[in-house]
Design a protein around this nucleic acid. Structure first.
Lengths: 183, 183
DNA sequence: CAATACATGTAACGCGTTACATGATTAG
DNA sequence: CTAATCATGTAACGCGTTACATGTATTG
């Protein structure tokens, strides 16, 4: 049960019974900016959750030619396993491998314009992402205020917001440093 | 040559000929907060770099019982491959999987104290890391000002600095949101 | 006396992505 | 008419970590 995918799925199932396809879609529309799953992980994991008694499955007929929809629901045991994981402290933050920083670190090997473009690209993308985060934040405030999860969802969006904000500031500072200015 | 390890090693070799052991050590003392390599990757990759003519290797006798030190140096071809990679735009930022945010997202399933502790832990660790980054930044200013790489190294340290700063701010804001305050 | 630094390497394992396989329906 | 959406799944592949294997010298 070490694999995080298990817990991600169990967590999403607390929001209601749904299919693998639904889960993938939900991820894309909510936690996608800090978590993702592929079908190659999703479907086998759902199967194993049922085998371990952490989820139940029942099929739903869809009259037309589509394959039967398999709807999964979290069990009481599953909820307990999830809660136990949530309460466990995070072992260690895995050291991210940041390709952009790696390239910048060796920037002395190339023309300054190469590094400058790299940084400006980050600024552009971070600016767009920040705006999206702001929209999502307002959406939660307006549409999910009553939901028991709203405070927690705001917190995760806030993380993205602060992160992209810091990237924008970093990009601006970095361009100055590139030009030889001292901060 | 898709594997990033290749370029990381080639980049480090631009700073001078060195062994696999040296490279690992260098990573730990410099880019370790955004890049890491294990011996399981390092040694086989070094071998393949030599096979591809991107690096040269010669052994150095160490009189005592230690194994012969294998010193690697980047070749002209290796430098060209590195530069070509540096100039290539970053394809896509790989979506990080952030376990802390995943836990917080499902915070409604547990007592608030669980989430609060998670956040306070982040703040503590980020505070320590930020201070370390500040020390490193000053160290670069004082000891490497003359090196052609200093501007680029400052930029990468700045990224860590901004990142940890934003995590601290996020943690503070999040604790307020947890208490029901609106931002 | 134990742990850490020095020094190199391989094998096994697990996780995660991508590509493949299939096929109907609906929206542009 | 073509692309996207709905819907499930498997197989292959690659990357990266961890554990194993070996052995000396130095530092605390």
């Amino acid at each position: 049960m070490a694999k995080k995918t298990n817990y991600a799925i169990l967590g999403i199932l607390t929001l209601g019974p749904q299919s693998g396809y639904d889960i993938k879609k939900f991820i894309g529309e909510s936690i996608g900016y800090f978590w993702q799953e592929s079908y190659g992980q999703l479907y086998p994991t759902l199967k194993s959750l049922v085998e371990d008694g952490l989820a139940d499955m029942h099929t739903e007929q869809t009259e037309d030619g589509k394959p039967d929809k398999k709807v999964y629901a979290i069990t009481e045991k599953g909820r307990q396993v999830l809660i136990e994981w949530l309460a466990r402290p995070v072992e260690k933050m895995p050291v991210m491998r940041n390709e952009i920083l790696l390239k910048l670190f060796f920037g002395y090997e190339v023309d300054d314009r190469v590094s400058r473009e790299l940084i400006e690209n980050v600024r552009r993308e971070a600016t767009t992402s920040k705006e999206q985060m702001q929209v999502i934040y307002k959406m939660i405030e307006e549409q999910y205020e009553k939901h028991e999860g709203s405070r927690f969802w705001k917190i995760t969006v806030l993380a993205g917001l602060h992160n992209f904000e810091s990237m924008i500031k970093w990009a601006e500072d970095s361009l100055k440093v590139l030009d030889g200015e001292s901060l």
